[in-house]
Simulated scan of single mutants.
Amino acid sequence: MSYTDASAMTARPGYFLDVAPMISALQFQPTDFELSHGWLRHVPSSHRFKFDKKGRVTIDARCECSGQSVRHEQSDELFQAFTGWRQHYWQPLQIDREFASHFKSPNAWVRLFRDIRMAWRRFRRREEPVTVPAEALAMVPAE
């Protein structure tokens, strides 16, 4: 049994998992986490966490961690840390990745198709091909 929530069957009565190190890691080591299919994954440990709409956490781990409950107060604090991580780290990272993907170098077939399309447009307009001066290719980037 690797999935658990606040009512875990294997949890010791009266014992709650201390998630303070995870809260700290979300704030100070955000690159250690990733979000996939609704699960927050701590990459170094492979522990996975899923939050419901009320902020309760489900833990998936291959160790005893998955059999423990999280104290309600810490669960709220963990959910707030997760929400902050997602808003300030994960979403901007995803936006940056998507934006960068718009400018990646196209493969040879796409480049060939674009060249043919531009040649066809110039032919239809009977325009001369565009030439780029060698000085423009040796431009120095702005500081």
Rank of each mutant, 00 (worst) to 15 (best):
Y3M: 01
R12Y: 08
P13D: 12
Y15R: 03
Y15K: 00
L17R: 02
A20H: 03
I23Y: 07
S24W: 04
P30R: 00
T31L: 14
T31M: 12
E34K: 05
H42V: 01
S45W: 03
H47L: 15
F49T: 00
K50C: 02
K54N: 09
K54W: 13
T58I: 04
I59L: 01
I59E: 01
C63E: 00
C63P: 03
E64F: 15
C65Y: 01
S66R: 07
S66L: 04
Q68F: 13
E73L: 10
Q74Y: 02
Q74A: 07
L78F: 11
F79A: 00
F82A: 04
T83F: 15
W85F: 03
W85V: 00
H88R: 05
Y89K: 00
W90K: 05
Q91W: 12
I95S: 01
D96N: 03
F99V: 11
A100I: 09
H102R: 08
A108N: 10
V110F: 02
R111H: 07
L112Y: 14
D115F: 04
R117Y: 13
A119W: 14
A119Q: 12
A119R: 13
R121Y: 15
R124F: 09
R126H: 13
R126E: 07
R126L: 14
V130G: 07
E135C: 10
A136K: 11
V140T: 09
V140F: 09
P141K: 02
E143V: 10
